[in-house]
Nucleic acid binder design. Structure first.
Length: 958
RNA sequence: GGGUAUGUGGCGGAAUUGGUAUACGCGUACGCCUCAGAAGCGUAUGGAGCAAUCCUUGGAGGUUCGAGUCCUCUCAUACCCACCA
């Protein structure tokens, strides 16, 4: 059948006009006759042009919005702009354009482009964060947080470019240099505003649990919050003089190793350094180290793998467990911003401390003896059986001539290792080793060289003895004097083979991550930290106990306190930027911060600002160049009062926009309580994976804080969260202007039509997974071909009713399209539509009922064409007001089905069976298939597995 | 270095609870149509083999009547965090 084509431009124009006239998409938020559904996508930054990524974000969510409306939901599907931000200011600096003008013009252009998309967004709820009507309430909410102690001022470092004389955002610092002029960046300490998100760390973590989010999204948030359980311990620092000792508090996750803490390390910025330095013998060296590290950014410090530090000479601190005096160091591997900014160093059991101790020759004291518990395999500990403790030796034995070592391979389980033997009552371990070497391998002249120190312990199931073993190994080293050997007993030979293994082959030879491999590693590299669990040693009365089990008692013994620590820092919201929401704070002549009273909100962003780099003072914001702002403050508050010059991080604006959508024009409140109660939480929030941590966490924090102030009805803002993938350039690389692989959607839309483009994006892969998909023009063309086929299907109309085959094909498609669209699996929904269209094409002409059903299914995916065909059929109203079809279950279940027949698990044919067929009937049918009959022969099958409607598997052997 | 995710044809991908692997689409080949090309239409298309048949979901084991799917190990790629004590 030849394919008709249609004029997509004309169809799009007329459909869009019609929708506007019918005002289809403005949601009546007060309509209670339908169930509410709040479908949210991340609002865009008005960067200028609508790109293919925007299409991917908006048009595909739109598919679901349309489907939901047809399914009878009252859908809120709003749109807005995250309109404050750095690019507007950069344009101002570069081209002298007013940031406001630049932003509003961009928004207007994007609105126009978005209309061509034909998306059903509700523009009447539009929110623009740089609009005073919006940021008035950003300021009001900031004030609420301030009043409740959730906003505070603290010192914090900013990146500063000494050439441009301007504060840089983190993303403007490339490799420690200013992205604009290439000069080296410095850090400056400024007093800045913080929101105390850390107070919510525990709840942000705990409330994640019941959310129906994908586990990887939750994991990313958990990692960002970074909870560690540990203890705070106090080491008293002494100066050697008569002075009172100074307490130094440390945070550690391993208080069980406190007996091994052989020195103390403070961050260079630690506030106590100023006190301690007065009594230190080397104040110049200490100051020099502070200056040196102060120049470096945190990133540069971490890039430098080599650990550096300086001793506070003449100062010691008392280990609260051992009561011994330990030296105190400054080192930049300790971060001032985490924990207490000070750590107790346990070089034997921490890799960083170990490295530092090696470099500065500090004592290393083992306090944990490793315990290896086998948990997998046939020798895994069997909890139901008793544990038998044994003292034993492990003997590493060197060859008399070569650099090879004596190994045993156990025949029962292919286990590889060294000679091992139980210590007899009253026997010297070295004697045990020598005896076992001779007994097990026959070598007669082992010479004991040394005991390798730290004992290790193993728990495993002894398969031969049939009991759990807790073996305490003493690792010993022997060398064979010569090769003199007698044949070991037959009993020994039956258990294992003897093998000589070269040093360099040993790692591959030994099974990984077990006790034997550890002992070998210790033998070849005698000093390295052990960070795992084990048995306490060198720890007074705690010796011999499990480190985990004794943890709480050890904390108490050391006079400490168990605490939880978070990696999450308080949220620094001050930005030394112009194009952002002004912080509604003024300072009295004494420098105390006061909120700008509500009746002066919105606290307007001044317009007489000089953007020239360096125009503002050192380390301050462009707002300080505004005369109007200063005058405004003095006029309202009095002489000597000064404004806050910083603006808010744009993440603050976007932390509450979903609350404003419900009541965007409200001049008396940030939103309407009644509507919030009805509409929150957001039912499904779709966005980019790059916002998994920061934006999503900030918004959750904001919502929780407002919940505690009884300003919002739910403690979590978002129910479902879907992360989307990215569209790559045709070359498979990330789209970027410099690579020249950016796709301009306008061109493709004008060529194939808006419907074809959105369908291509829907078809490219699963939407709710964060894959990345290369753009392919052939795909958009293919979608247009498909739409032409649909168009052709509507050419004629049958007068008789649809036949059962058509009805069944429709039912199957309804079922699949519905389920897949609900899960955002638009690709498979479309595949079901294509199968349906192919089936329908085999029938001469379609009855009106079949056409209507097909149009309903098509409407969310190809809204313009569906509307056009609807009109062509002579139907009233809009196709988008149709009721979403439901599949008749009776049509879905076929009475007969083709199932595969397997012989011994391999598919050998297929049979058509009724769903209610018995096993005997199935077997009878299967025997009619020649290939199967041949394989089965005359014998009765040993076993038959028959799952009706799925599979028949005939097993012929046992 | 740590965490998370993903590995299925030439390509994007499909496969409810373990139950006919490769749906749908692209690309490719051949044919039809055409003066010719484009478009369109039709057929084929995981690999090997003339065939019967055998092999195939990154690799190696395992559990099972049956594994893309579950378990163990291993390799590769992507993203995020990276001295967090």
């Amino acid at each position: 059948m030849p394919r008709e084509s249609f004029d997509h431009k004309e169809i799009e124009r007329s459909a869009q006009e019609k929708w506007e006239k019918l005002d289809l998409y403005a949601t009546d938020l007060t309509d209670d006759s339908k169930e509410k559904y709040y479908l949210l996508f991340e609002f865009p930054y008005p960067s200028g042009d609508l790109h293919i990524g925007h299409w991917y974000a908006f048009a595909l969510t739109d598919i679901y919005a349309r489907k939901l409306r047809m399914a009878g939901k009252n859908v809120l599907f709003p749109m807005g702009f995250d309109a404050f931000g750095l690019p507007a200011e950069n344009a101002a600096i570069k081209n002298g354009v007013d940031p406001k003008k630049w932003t509003y013009e961009n928004m207007e252009r994007m609105r126009t482009q978005m209309r061509t998309m034909g998306a059903s967004m509700d523009w009447s709820k539009e929110v623009v964060t740089c609009d005073p009507g919006y940021y008035k309430w950003t300021q009001w909410l900031f004030a609420k947080l301030f009043e409740h102690g959730l906003a505070e001022r603290k010192n914090a470092a900013v990146k500063w470019c000494p050439f441009d004389k301007t504060v840089l955002a983190n993303e403007q610092v490339i490799d420690g240099h200013c992205e604009r002029c290439g000069h080296e960046v410095e850090e400056k300490n400024l007093t800045q505003w913080f929101l105390k998100i850390t107070q919510y760390a525990e709840r942000l973590l705990k409330d994640l649990e019941p959310l129906p989010w994908r586990e990887d999204i939750k994991d990313a948030q958990r990692a960002w919050i970074g909870e560690s359980e540990g203890a705070k311990l106090v080491f008293m620092a002494h100066t050697g003089e008569e002075d009172a000792p100074v307490p130094l508090e440390v945070f550690t996750t391993r208080p069980d190793t406190v007996f091994g803490a052989t020195y103390l390390v403070l961050a260079p910025e630690h506030p106590m350094v100023d006190v301690l330095i007065q009594d230190a013998l080397n104040p110049e060296a200490i100051r020099a180290y502070q200056r040196e590290t102060g120049k470096k950014t945190e990133r540069e410090r971490s890039e430098n793998k080599e650990k550096t530090g300086v001793a506070l000479e003449g100062i010691t601190a008392t280990n609260p467990a051992t009561k011994e005096e330990v030296p105190v160091y400054l080192a930049d591997y300790v971060l001032a911003s985490y924990g207490t900014g000070a750590v107790m160093a346990v070089p034997a059991h921490d890799e960083r401390d170990f490295e530092f101790a090696q470099r500065y020759q500090l004592p290393i004291k083992d306090v944990i003896e490793p315990v290896f518990v086998r948990t997998i395999g046939t020798d895994a500990v069997r909890p139901e059986e008793p544990m038998v403790e044994r003292q034993a030796v492990v003997a590493i034995v060197k060859h008399w001539g070569e650099d090879k070592y004596l190994c045993l391979r156990w025949k029962s389980n292919d286990w590889t290792g060294f000679v091992i033997g139980g210590i007899e009552e009253g026997e010297e371990p070295s004697v045990t080793g020598a005896r076992e070497i001779t007994e097990e391998t026959g070598y007669k002249n082992p010479r004991f060289v040394r005991d390798m120190g730290v004992p290790t312990h193993s728990q495993f199931y002894h398969e031969v003895k049939r009991q759990n073993r807790f073996a305490h190994f003493t690792p010993l080293y022997y060398e064979l004097a010569d090769g003199e050997r007698e044949e070991p007993s037959a009993e020994e030979l039956a258990i294992h083979d003897i093998e000589w293994v070269a040093k360099e082959d040993m790692d591959a030879y030994l099974s990984r991550d077990n006790d034997i491999a550890y002992i070998w590693k210790r033998f070849v590299a005698p000093a390295f930290p052990y960070t795992g669990d084990g048995i306490l040693a060198n720890s007074d009365s705690f010796d011999g106990r499990s480190n985990r089990e004794a943890m709480t008692e050890l904390i108490a013994y050391a006079g400490g306190e168990a605490v939880k620590q978070y990696r999450l820092r308080d949220w620094l919201v001050s930005r030394q930027r112009y194009w952002g929401c002004p912080i509604p704070i003024v300072y009295d002549p004494e420098g105390n911060a006061h909120l700008v009273p509500n009746d002066h909100l919105p606290w307007l962003l001044p317009e007489d600002v000089d953007f020239t780099p360096g125009a503002a003072g050192v380390g301050t914001s462009p707002l300080s160049t505004s005369r109007e702002l200063k005058e405004r403050v003095e006029r309202i508050f009095g002489a000597g009062w000064t404004p806050e010059y910083d603006t808010l991080d744009t993440f603050v604006d976007s932390s509450w926009y979903y609350l404003r959508y419900v009541d965007p024009a409200d001049a008396h409140d940030f939103s309407d309580q009644g509507l919030l109660k009805k509409w929150m939480p957001v039912d499904r929030y779709s966005g980019g994976s790059e916002h998994t941590t920061m934006h999503l966490l900030y918004a959750r924090f904001f919502n929780k804080a407002l919940y505690d102030l009884a300003l919002v009805p739910t403690s979590e803002p978002f129910n479902e969260r879907y992360n989307r993938g990215v569209i790559l350039g045709p070359d498979g690389a990330k789209m970027s202007k410099s690579k020249g692989n950016v796709i301009n959607p306008d061109e493709v839309v004008s060529k194939f039509g808006s419907d074809a483009v959105r369908m291509y994006l829907a078809f490219i892969g699963p939407y709710n997974e964060t894959g990345s998909y290369p753009w392919n023009l052939d795909g958009a063309f293919a979608m247009r071909k498909f739409l032409d086929r649909v168009y052709t299907l509507f050419e004629g109309t049958a007068t008789e009713k649809s036949n059962p085959e058509v009805l069944r094909a429709l039912a199957v498609a309804i079922d699949k399209v519905t389920a897949d669209t609900d899960r955002f699996k638009f690709n498979t929904a479309l595949s079901a539509l294509m199968v349906l269209v192919r089936d329908l094409e085999s029938h001469a002409q379609l009855a009106p009922d079949a056409k209507r059903t097909l149009l309903a299914l098509l409407a969310p995916f190809a809204p313009h064409l569906a509307e056009h065909l609807w009109e062509k059929m002579g139907e009233e109203g809009s196709v988008h007001q149709m009721v979403w079809p439901e599949a008749d279950p009776a049509l879905l279940s076929a009475s007969e089905i083709v199932i595969g027949v397997q012989v011994n698990g391999k598919k050998r044919g297929e049979v058509r069976l009724s769903l209610t067929a018995s096993e005997d009937e199935a077997l009878m049918e299967a025997r009619k298939v020649p290939a199967i009959a041949l394989l089965l022969g005359e014998t009765a099958p040993a076993r038959v597995v028959y799952v009706p409607g799925r599979i028949l598997n005939i097993v012929t052997q046992g």
